[in-house]
Design a protein around this nucleic acid. Sequence first.
DNA 1: ACGTGTTTGAAATGTACGTTTGAATTAAAT
DNA 2: ATTTAATTCAAACGTACATTTCAAACACGT
Lengths: 228, 228
Amino acid sequence: MSNKLSTQHKILDAAQSLFAETGYNGTSLRQITSQAEVNLASVNYHFGSKKELIQAVLQRYLLVLMPRLDQEFNRLLAAQQPNSLNQVLSVFVRPLLELNKVHPHGTRIFLQLLGRGYTDVQGHLRWFFNHHYGRVLDKLVLLVQQACPELPAGELFWRLHFSLGTVVFTMASSEALAEIAEADFNENVDIEGVILRLLPYLSAAIAAPIPLVSQLSQTAPLLASEGR
Amino acid sequence: MSNKLSTQHKILDAAQSLFAETGYNGTSLRQITSQAEVNLASVNYHFGSKKELIQAVLQRYLLVLMPRLDQEFNRLLAAQQPNSLNQVLSVFVRPLLELNKVHPHGTRIFLQLLGRGYTDVQGHLRWFFNHHYGRVLDKLVLLVQQACPELPAGELFWRLHFSLGTVVFTMASSEALAEIAEADFNENVDIEGVILRLLPYLSAAIAAPIPLVSQLSQTAPLLASEGR
DNA sequence: ACGTGTTTGAAATGTACGTTTGAATTAAAT
DNA sequence: ATTTAATTCAAACGTACATTTCAAACACGT
């Protein structure tokens, strides 16, 4: 049994935990290398820079997750009849939970890292993400469009981003939320439970009825000042 | 006409923009004071520390917003028949948009600051928020409970936090989203438009049907490994 | 066993940060 | 007008950061 881990592996393991807990900017290479019990310089030796280390930490999960998602999307797209929104969203559950094979608590850590990526490093990680995996996510948009044909494209854009926010924020603050939930309702609040709670929430949200324009304008003349 | 602004005011104005754009940790006092065209030391002179400056920036909006929300909550609580979820959520629109009186783009900036507060400074701002305004938010929980009496308390807890995530994430990345939306669908994407789009989304999400336990356990034996 | 290429180690570099200091300046009060 | 308090200013302090350097230790094919 070789419990001897490579330096790179030790760095990645320490980095992902610290990044998930305190963010990318909030974590120093000194914290990472001291928790990994390796020399400070080895990060720059093995990964080049902190920025590239962040990408490497994310890639360890993305390289497993995205092909799995792509495969699921293709399966749904090949179906004869259009899929329901619930079917489309459920497709995320298995691939996400299988990230626990990459690392214990891999699912939670990856989703936290994803959340950090959208708020911490301005734009940089968003670009990295869209550039590498934009094709896959286009298939998701198509599937949701097929599931909700009555939804205008503009509305769908916003609701998918609302949903991304829901997931990402929930995971980024999942530690705190789990503590509160456990104290106040003593329920099981592992990552799987949260994901399964999210599904009906998101499903109903994305398929919400579109308010009529007349109902919108009813609340329109709200303020005399300030139109962008 | 006295267009001479006090040093404190200039600092607050510069700080809120920078905090909203690049986060609390991501903004240095040197950036703030140089944009405000004041001396570096004046932040510590007028506010004591960076941490207290962050609180002061938030308080400028919270002291306007929270009493307004409290008043609206009390109005709804005094109603004879229980209010619909839509009525409860709509109550946020006016008070939030009135923050534009505190400062141009005040609504957007405040919501961005709120989002940053939940991800940037670990726990500290969350405590500050709950400690000062927990009483007010309890009324919101009560109102939602009255609007959705079939929803268990534990489920409601999670869904309200999901919703907070939706709002906060959307606002934190509203600049980028607005750019994309404008380019791809050329729609009006001011802050009021986003808020009005959020209402039906959140309303449907919070009131989503609760999945049966049998349906949950159907997807339960997903992985052999790893239960938290 | 040797020599080569890879990896680690301790130390130093330069930059940026929040905060403090004490003198200079301005405003207010008597 | 003179004293007193409040504010601004330039400079410095100590700390922490990412990155670089270069010698030492190691791995390993020959």
